[in-house]
Design a protein around this nucleic acid. Structure first.
Length: 1010
RNA sequence: GGGCCGGUAGCUCAGCUUGGCUGGAGCGUUCGGCUGAUAACCGAAAGGUCGAGAGUUCAAAUCUCUCCCGGCCCA
């Protein structure tokens, strides 16, 4: 009887892997020892190099969900990994605090319907206080989840985008833009909700349920070709009021247009739509007189019929030659309506850019409430959409109306009030980033994106190169630091608090901060005319706010050290968001074709299990906090990274967590426990019993060398996959090593050798421990960026326990480096061949219904010399795995195997023959193992620990000949089932015991444990 | 409406760049086996019109075109 495991070896690792408890313990360990702070300090002083980092700040208008958490895990992975490699990274948190999303959240909390009500009922000052309160609330949630997830970002060094010092540094970007003539006032078309009386961001327009089916007029009308008798352009619109701001017509240059004779008139429209439109207008008597390419129509002037009502349009016609003429644009859709589109640059974004491109003046005669101004002549004072009827009437009076009906169609509405939105040009401030396009693109080209798709997506977006409208008519944001003279309209920019207070006409009394309403109260004296200068009443786009972080979150010295930063990762929706604003602002700030980041990984979005976007209305948002209360952070982290490529959409399914990810981590846990239990018993000391020692004492066997070689391969490939951000493949490599190489192959190969306390084989056992210790420790380190809790737990409770000289935390360890001397590809191939032959033996056994636990006497392998050599490298392993006593090799199939006593299996020129016939010895040993197996099952069922030693095992009512077969192997069975005695009884009546019935190949036997 | 991405076993995903044997893995199911580190593991079976159609080719999951469906972004 082996003395091994005599008592339950006291390990601090529970027999089951209970990650939730383990992680809580490790969290407290890190906090108590201030592990992350100490690590950061250490690396700052002593490093291989500095890798800059700036946190992409989450907006504090909600709580984190799995999509956020996945992103944060990728950031943390990179930090932990590069830090282990010896780099210093300023992995400091940051929070996006301002902007519309936060305002809307606070409006909701305050129960306010719109901006006007907000200002009247709540007022700016209190509103700002409420915004700050909301931020603090959500900040707590984020920090809590980071902690639970093991995101080691430094919360104490976080930046907040609303702090005065941050805003002052953000203003430096604008000052630089101002100096380069890139900051301009101009018009921009925005979506406006007449109900809420506020403009909407494009994000709001895009909200899931903002598109609704609505009823609109369907108006066909005609504009007469100038100086023609009876030629007209036929036009369709659902927004008649825009005819009051009509500036141009557009046709598609490639399409064919027809002149259609209807009554005494010729109507011009796209040829392919003639039949359908005529049918719709119920005109049956018509004829296509001639056709002409769209391009030929360019420059045609037309008579705008409402000139008398809107005199300003008549003036514009004289000021610019293109007003009220036809232009060509590819975007004109010739598959709907008439293929002739009327353009109102004051009321449509596309129209607006068409006009801007041709320097056609923007006619936008609307006030803040979207009522026509006096510039609109007869429409003065009328709300835009209410002018629909009047326009129709006036067209009718002038003979320009063809037909008016109603139409139901999908149209964007306000997500809050569901009023139909209108688009109109308003006065805004722009960064003329279109002028920097070449530089921006050059900078972006130099960035590493890891994958082609997101790269192309980003670059093609940048190529659009539109000016950036940075002004917002909101409250909670960085104030635009431009003051304008009431008298002479002169403008000035003030970009620091100090400068502002110095120049102020009157110093502000009491509290002062760089927000509305305090900054608005500061007036300046105009240097040109001495008039009063007031601040332009805008705040900045929140993307400008967060895009300023590389400069604004650091000091000058830090900025020089850390920017451009090494690596960033955010979700793919940041293509147009942060990735873009960072780039544009950096180019403005530096004047160089340089990106503020050297690499950017765009992650796919997180969707629910069915592939739907997570949204409040669907109620399918998985909140990280709730998830992590029930599920291990390590398991989540592993799942986030392993499930799919980081750029793929991530279909989160909680049920998948407990499957493969759990199994892999659990296996690593148990492998480590296995090492600890065994090695502690033999007083293994990693300082003394090293691999070098084992080598010297010639105790390393091919199986060990094979494992060590596979480990080197794993280190190389895993690190390479991390480097290329193929986290899913990286973890595939790691998983394979743990499950296949270690758990399925190596441990079974050495288990028997460890299953003894024979002092003569102690050196061999120590060599196996050294091998396992090294391999498992390296694996634990490789896992650390992914499963930091498990790695730390194993490190503290196994590696540090066995080797007190180990570091204070796994995080202080160095990243494993491959050892080329341990790599042996030939050996790896030989073992691959060996394993293939083993599975051939299994296949042959299965054919002959020979259980694996039944020993057999002979196997003959008919194969090439290579295969023979491969098997001979580790013949003992082959025999052990196949449970065969002897193996022979042949090149040709020997005659003897043709007898029915042999069974076989073949693959790729390798044939394996097994002697199926068994003598009494083999039968007895096989039977013993059959019985032993039942005993083991019973032990487990009755709740015995593996280490418990049984008083006696009783076997009863076996057939007489079986008892005889069994008799010589009872001693061996005692060892196997860990019992002081194994006794065979004739009848159950011989002993007072709880008997359990078992079946062995149709025969009943009874087993009892005492 | 435009751009991009995806559609491969019941589920989750590889394979596609550079066409080539019988299209893979994991999970799940069924049957059998193995097992005291493991919630593991091994073998077999069932399960695929590789979204549809056409083209190129001796040969297409892979290349080209068209269409359908889903997702994201933009309008």
């Amino acid at each position: 009887m082996t003395a091994k495991f005599k008592a339950n070896s006291e390990t601090s690792l529970s027999p089951d892997y209970c990650p939730l408890e383990l992680e809580q313990e490790i969290r407290e360990f890190w906090e108590k020892h201030r592990t992350h702070q100490r690590l950061s300090q250490l690396r700052e002083k002593n490093n291989l190099g500095v890798l800059g980092y700036v946190e992409g700040p989450p907006t504090l208008n909600g709580i984190p969900h799995v999509g956020h958490s996945r992103g944060r895990v990728m950031k943390d992975l990179r930090y932990r990994w590069k830090t282990m490699q010896g780099y210093f990274i300023p992995f400091w948190a940051g929070w996006d605090c301002q902007g519309l999303p936060v305002e809307l959240e606070v409006e909701r909390l305050l129960g306010v319907k719109n901006k006007r009500e907000l200002l009247e009922r709540v007022g700016e000052e209190r509103f700002i206080e409420e915004c700050k309160k909301a931020i603090v609330k959500y900040h707590k949630e984020w920090v809590e989840v980071d902690k639970r997830l093991g995101v080691s970002i430094d919360q104490e060094k976080a930046y907040w985008t609303y702090f005065d010092d941050y805003i002052e540094r953000e203003w430096q970007y604008l000052k630089r833009a101002w100096g380069q003539g890139l900051l301009e006032e101009g018009h921009y078309v925005v979506a406006y909700c007449p109900g809420c009386q506020t403009s909407l961001s494009s994000a709001e327009v895009g909200y899931a349920d903002s598109y609704r089916e609505v009823e609109d007029p369907s108006l066909y009308f005609k504009f007469k070709v100038a100086e023609s008798q009876n030629e007209y352009f036929l036009i369709w619109t659902t927004m008649p009021f825009t005819v009051a701001t009509d500036t141009m017509l557009a046709v598609n240059p490639e399409a064919t247009y027809a002149k259609v004779k209807v009554g005494g008139e010729k109507w011009i429209m796209v040829e392919q739509r003639v039949a359908s439109v005529m049918a719709e207008l119920e005109v049956s008597d018509y004829e296509v007189l001639e056709t002409v390419k769209g391009a030929r129509l360019e420059g045609t002037k037309y008579d705008y019929p409402l000139k008398d009502l809107v005199p300003r349009l008549a003036e514009l016609e004289r000021e610019h030659p293109l007003v009220h003429s036809v232009i060509c644009e590819d975007f004109v859709d010739v598959t709907t309506a008439t293929g002739v589109v009327h353009l109102s640059p004051g009321n449509g974004e596309e129209d607006f850019f068409v006009a801007l491109k041709r320097k056609v003046p923007i006619f936008a005669p609307f006030d803040d409430e979207v009522k026509f101004t006096s510039e609109a002549g007869a429409f003065n004072g009328m709300f835009a959409r209410d002018a629909d009827e009047k326009v129709v009437e006036e067209l009718r009076k002038r003979g320009s109306l063809v037909e008016v009906k109603t139409v139901r169609h999908e149209y964007p509405t306000c997500w809050r009030s569901h009023h139909k939105l209108v688009w109109l040009a308003r006065k805004e401030y722009f960064l003329r980033t279109d002028k920097l396009n070449a530089k921006t693109l050059e900078a972006a080209e130099k960035v590493t994106y890891f994958y082609e798709n997101p790269k192309n997506r980003f670059l093609s977006f940048l190529k659009e190169g539109k000016p950036w409208c940075i002004s917002r008519e909101r409250v909670w944001g960085t104030p635009l630091p431009v003051w304008k003279c009431e008298k002479c309209q002169a403008k000035t920019i003030v970009a620091t608090k100090k400068e502002l207070l110095e120049k102020a006409v009157e110093k502000p009394a009491g509290h002062f901060e760089l927000h509305k309403p305090w900054v608005d109260r500061v007036t300046l004296r105009c240097e040109q005319c001495g008039g009063v200068m007031r601040r332009e009443n805008f705040v900045l786009d929140t993307w400008h706010n967060s895009g300023a972080s590389p400069y604004a979150r650091f000091t000058d010295e830090q900025y020089r050290k850390y920017v451009p930063v090494d690596f960033l990762t955010e979700a793919i929706d940041q293509t147009r968001g942060w990735a873009n604003s960072l780039l544009l602002q950096h180019v403005i700030l530096t004047g160089k074709a340089e990106s503020p980041y050297r690499a950017f990984l765009f992650q796919g979005l997180a969707l629910d299990a069915k592939g739907r976007k997570m949204s409040k209305s669907l109620g399918n948002i998985v909140e990280s906090k709730k998830l992590l209360e029930k599920v291990s952070a390590d398991v989540c982290r592993f799942y986030f990274l392993k499930k799919c490529s980081p750029i793929d959409a991530f279909h989160f399914d909680a049920q998948e967590l407990s499957r493969r990810p759990y199994q892999v981590l659990s296996t690593l846990y148990h492998l480590s426990r296995f090492l600890l239990q065994n090695s502690e018993f033999d007083k293994f000391d990693p300082q003394k019993h090293t691999l070098e020692q084992a080598e010297k004492k010639r105790q390393l066997k091919p199986a060990d060398r094979w494992l060590l070689s596979k480990l080197q391969e794993t280190i190389v490939e895993y690190t390479a996959k991390l480097e290329s951000c193929e986290f899913n493949f990286a973890l595939g490599v790691l998983e394979d090593f743990v499950i296949e190489t270690l758990s399925r192959l190596y441990v079974p190969m050495v288990r028997k050798e460890l299953w003894t306390d024979d002092p003569e084989t102690l050196e061999r056992r120590l060599a196996v421990y050294a091998t396992l210790y090294y391999a498992l420790k390296e694996v634990t380190l490789l896992f650390n960026p992914v499963t930091p809790f498990l790695s730390e737990a194993l490190y503290q409770k196994i590696f540090k326990k066995l080797d007190p000289a180990a570091k204070d935390s796994v995080n202080f360890e160095e990243w494993p480096k491959p050892n080329a001397k341990m790599r042996n590809k030939t050996l790896e191939e030989e073992f691959a061949t060996l394993f293939k032959c083993v599975s051939l033996v299994y296949a042959a056994r299965q054919n002959a219904k020979l259980k694996r636990r039944w020993p057999l006497s002979r196997t003959i392998v008919v194969a090439s010399e290579n295969v023979e050599n491969a098997l001979k490298t580790a013949e003992d392993v082959f025999l052990e795995m196949t449970n065969v006593k002897n193996v022979e090799y042949c090149r040709e199939v020997p005659r003897e195997v043709s007898s029915e006593e042999w069974v076989q299996a073949s693959e790729e020129g390798t044939h394996v023959f097994l002697l199926a016939k068994r003598d009494d010895k083999l039968l007895g040993e096989g039977l013993m193992r059959d019985v032993a197996r039942r005993v083991q099952a019973l032990r487990k069922e009755l709740g015995y620990m593996p280490t418990d030693v049984l008083k006696a095992v009783l076997v009863a009512e076996a057939e007489k000949q079986d008892v005889e077969l069994l008799q010589p192997y009872l001693k061996a069975m005692e060892e196997l089932v860990r019992a002081k005695e194994v006794r065979v009884c004739k009848s159950r009546r011989e002993a007072e015991a709880e008997w359990h019935e078992f079946q062995i190949d149709d025969k009943k036997i009874y087993i009892a444990i005492l």
